[in-house]
Structure formats: structure tokens, C-alpha cells
Simulated scan of single mutants.
Amino acid sequence: MSEQQKVAIVTGAGSGIGAATALLLSQRGYRVVLNGRTENKLEHTASQMASGTASVKTGDVSKENDVAALIEHTITQFGQLDLLVNNAAIAAFEPIDGFSVEDWDQQMNINVRSVFLMTKAALPYLRESKGSIVNISSVSGIGGDWNGFCYNASKGAVSNFTRAMALDLGPQGVRINAVAPSLTDTDMAADVINNPDVMAAFKQRLPMGRAARPSEVASVIAFLASDDARFVNGAIIPVDGGLSASNGQPNLAGG
């Protein structure tokens, strides 16, 4: 099936990597269902996409009922599902002493539970289309960040979920992979990006000397979803400008 006939769901599509991915998929002919919790952000993304290629469905993908409604909306609108991009995420960095159980649960629910719920709900349709899943992990799921224990744990879970599910889903004709960005110029990273002193320290550790652009991560997501990657399954692809080549040095949060 050509990309002009395919249907994708992108969660967290209101900004950053999610928005860039939705736009690129639209340019390649996908019809895309944009999901997030803030409707005006989703509508802004949709307004930049080709006519007839975008549909907006708000909801919290850490909640079962919202996930079911999102899948139902997609099938009602477009009749099929070929690609799921699990991008929705939040990040909070602070010492464990000030980190509440509620903080932990919120981050784990949005970053990990949503991936499980969306994957499970989408699978019947992805099996039918022999489709694929691309999860957004992070270099933070490969190593550690100061005061990032919860975010690191959540992205480590996403990476290992991806590897394990590749074993189960590969024989069913469904591929699942993940990208692992480093620091990316998104709303979530605005406090870092807009702080010259912090960015100066980051640039010293990033071999390419800058943060990633959302479009650069989106390009790798689109590759993993394409037929060009038809034998790529269970891979965690760093999109980090060479950071993960630093042989075990502490990583820099991404996504």
C-alpha cells in the first residue's frame, strides 16, 4: 500500500515532535488523526496540513475510555489504521526528596501507560493492515540525567517495551521501533533552550553543538514507518547528534 492510502495516529500532536511528524506524514500522503489534550494546539497543527489529510480528536491517552474513543474515531473517519506514533509525554526534573507519588504516577501514566493502552487498542487494526508502531523514547532511556530518575525510568520502560513487543508482533506482520532523541527544541525543553548558560553546558556535550530540530526527529520516525525500513524491527534509533557515541557518559534529556 502506498503512503497516499495510509492512515496514522500521532499522539501529542499539538507541538514539537508530534506536530512535526504529523506535518511530514501529511506531506507524504498519509491521512493523520491528531491527538492531544489541548484542542487549539491540535487545530493549529491541522491548519498547516493538506486539505482532507487531518482529523483532530482530543483526549488523554493515559485513560482507557479516551484511547477507545480515539481508535473508534480513526476507524469511523478513515476506515483503517496503518501507523501508530506514540509521542505523548511529559517531563519533570527534580530531586527525589521533593518528588511526590502523584508526580511519579502522572509521569508514568502519560509516558508509559499510554504506550501500553494505545498499542493494545490499535493492534487489531495494525494486524489487519500489517502496519507499524513508532514509539518516542529518549536518550534518557539509555542512560541517566541528574534529577531525572522518573523521566529516565519512564523512557527506559518505553525502550524495553518496544524491544519486547517486537518479538511478539514481528511474527504477526506488525513492526515496532522507537526513536531516542536527545535535547530537542520543543515546548517541553523550553526552559533549557531559552537559558544561555544551561545551553552552553549542553552544547559542550552534544557533538554537533546544538539541540535537535523536531523535523529532524520526524524524518527518522517517517523512515521507520516506511517500506524502506521493512526489515527494521525492535530498534531504538538515537537521534542525538552523536551524543550516545560518548561511551557511557551521562545523557541529555530529549523528546
Rank of each mutant, 00 (worst) to 15 (best):
Ala19Gln: 15
Gly52Arg: 07
Ser140Arg: 04
Gly141Glu: 13
Ala88Phe: 00
Arg230Pro: 00
Met165Gln: 13
Gly36Arg: 02
Asn87Leu: 02
Tyr125Glu: 03
Asp145Arg: 12
Ala122Cys: 08
Pro207Met: 05
Asn152Gln: 14
Thr186Phe: 09
Thr21Arg: 08
Ile133Cys: 10
Ala166Gly: 14
Val33Asp: 02
Thr162Val: 05
Leu117Phe: 02
Pro171Arg: 09
Gly156Glu: 09
Gly144Trp: 03
Asp187Thr: 12
Ser51Trp: 11
Val115Ala: 14
Ala20Leu: 01
Thr186Ser: 11
Thr53Arg: 10
Met49Leu: 10
Asp82Val: 00
Pro238Tyr: 07
Gln249Asn: 13
Lys63Gln: 14
Asp97Ala: 15
Val220Glu: 02
Leu25Asn: 03
Cys150Ala: 15
Pro207Gln: 02
Val67His: 03
Phe161Asp: 01
Val174Gln: 09
Ser219Ala: 15
Pro124Met: 12
Phe99Pro: 01
Glu128Tyr: 13
Val85Phe: 13
Thr162Lys: 05
Ala212Thr: 14
Leu224Cys: 00
Pro95Ala: 12
Asp197Leu: 14
Asp187Gly: 13
Val32Arg: 02
Ser244Thr: 15
Ala157Ile: 07
Pro196Tyr: 12
Ile193Leu: 10
Ala69Asn: 14
Ile221His: 06
Ile236Lys: 00
Met199Thr: 07
Gly144His: 12
Asn152Glu: 12
Ala222Asn: 02
Arg210Lys: 14
Asp227Ser: 02
Ala229Val: 05
Ala121Pro: 08
Glu72Gln: 11
Leu243Lys: 08
Pro171Leu: 04
Met208Lys: 12
Val61Phe: 06
Arg163Gln: 04
Ser138Tyr: 06
Ser154Trp: 03
Lys6His: 05
Ala218Lys: 10
Asn109Ala: 14
Ser47Leu: 13
Phe149Asp: 09
Ala222Thr: 05
Ala89Tyr: 02
Thr45Asn: 06
Val232Asp: 01
Ala46Asn: 05
Tyr151Lys: 06
Gly14His: 05
Ala178Gln: 09
Cys150Lys: 05
Leu252Lys: 00
Asn40Lys: 13
Val85Pro: 07
Gln249Asp: 10
Ile90Cys: 03
Ser100Phe: 03
Gly12Trp: 00
Ser154Pro: 01
Asn40Ser: 15
Ile110Lys: 04
Gln4Met: 13
Asp97Trp: 10
Asn111Glu: 11
Phe231Gln: 11
Gly156Met: 12
Thr53Asp: 08
Ser26Thr: 01
Thr53Phe: 08
Ile75Met: 12
Ala54Val: 01
Pro214Tyr: 10
Ala69Gln: 14
Asp228Gln: 09
Val61Arg: 02
Val10Trp: 04
Ser26Arg: 01
Ala245Tyr: 07
Val158Asn: 00
Glu216Gly: 09
Gly18Val: 03
